[in-house]
Structures are given as structure tokens and as C-alpha cells.
């Protein structure tokens, strides 16, 4: 009994090493298989929405749509959603429309900006003034050129 156990244990050493090596090899093989699958599924990095001058066209709204003070629209550009509006003083502004609380699209309501999901309110500077939003909305420099609107890459802080 003791003898056969000893023999078995000695034999097991080689067997264990072999199985261990086989395990490592299969893990490497599985990794090699999963890598293409991961790459296939991994989202590709989106193209930079801004051109060489740091400018991107605004889609869904034209300058004439918001010619009057107090007019505003939800719009967007390749990098995300926007609210574009004129302040009561007539200044053209563009803010990210993505609420900083839970990511809903906010709405321009004349004197302030509201999020309907959880009642967040921002002022026309984009500052969070009431409700759950923790941070102000990102502000973009916006310019009108030939009736079309463009936003610029925000300056890095």
C-alpha cells in the first residue's frame, strides 16, 4: 500500500507538471482566440469631431432659426448634443445638452435651462442652480458663418 502510494506520488509529479504545462498552453491558446473576438467587439475610437482649426458644424439648427433674443433649440454636432440659444440680450450661446446629473438632454426655456428627468435647472451660463446636477454644462464657443453655426473645441483647462 505504502509502496504503491509512493510510486504514484512520484509519477504524479511528472504528470502534474505536464498537466500544468498543458493548462498554461491552453490558457495562452484561449487568449489568442479571445483577442480577435475582443477586438471585433471593442468600439472603435470615434473620429475627432473638430477640424484642424478646432471647428465643427452644428447640425439641426441654422442661424435664422434662432435670430431673435430668447429663441433656442436642441441641436448637435459630431461630438454630442447641444442647446443653442440667444440670451434675452441677444448673445448667441451653445452649451452641451447632456445633463451632468444623469445624462438626459436638457431644454432651453427662455430664461433658464431645464432637465425634465429629475428637475435639474441651469442658468444661461450653464451653471447648475437648482436640483440634482452636480456640475455646470460644458460651454462651447459658437460662431455664425454664412447662416450656419459652428462650435469650437473647448479650451483645455
Amino acid at each position: 500500500m505504502t509502496d504503491s502510494n509512493t510510486t504514484r506520488r512520484e509519477g504524479d509529479g511528472g504528470r502534474r507538471r505536464f498537466l500544468g504545462g498543458l493548462g498554461l498552453l491552453s490558457m495562452a491558446w484561449a487568449g489568442g482566440l479571445l483577442y480577435p473576438v475582443y477586438r471585433y467587439l471593442a468600439p472603435t475610437i470615434p473620429k475627432d469631431p473638430f477640424d484642424a482649426e478646432g471647428k465643427a458644424p452644428v447640425e439641426g439648427v441654422k442661424a435664422e432659426d434662432i435670430a431673435q433674443p430668447g429663441q433656442g433649440r436642441n441641436a448637435g454636432f459630431a461630438g454630442g448634443g447641444l442647446v443653442v440659444f440667444r440670451t434675452p440680450e441677444g448673445e448667441l450661446r451653445a452649451l452641451s445638452s447632456k445633463c451632468t446629473h444623469a445624462g438626459c438632454n436638457v431644454e432651453f426655456q427662455g430664461g433658464s435651462i431645464h432637465c425634465h428627468c429629475h428637475g435639474g435647472v441651469y442658468d444661461l451660463e450653464g451653471k447648475n442652480v437648482s436640483g440634482p446636477p452636480p456640475k455646470p454644462l460644458t460651454r462651447y464657443r459658437v460662431a455664425e458663418q454664412g447662416g450656419l453655426l459652428y462650435v469650437y473645441r473647448p479650451d483645455k483647462a
Binding site: P36, V37, R39, Y40, A42, T44
Partner: peptide, 9 residues
Amino acid sequence: MEVPYGNLM
């Protein structure tokens, strides 16, 4: 053409 390994899959 675009998806990595798409042609292989």
C-alpha cells in the same frame, strides 16, 4: 472593411 477581424469572422 472596417471592423477589426470582421472579415475573418
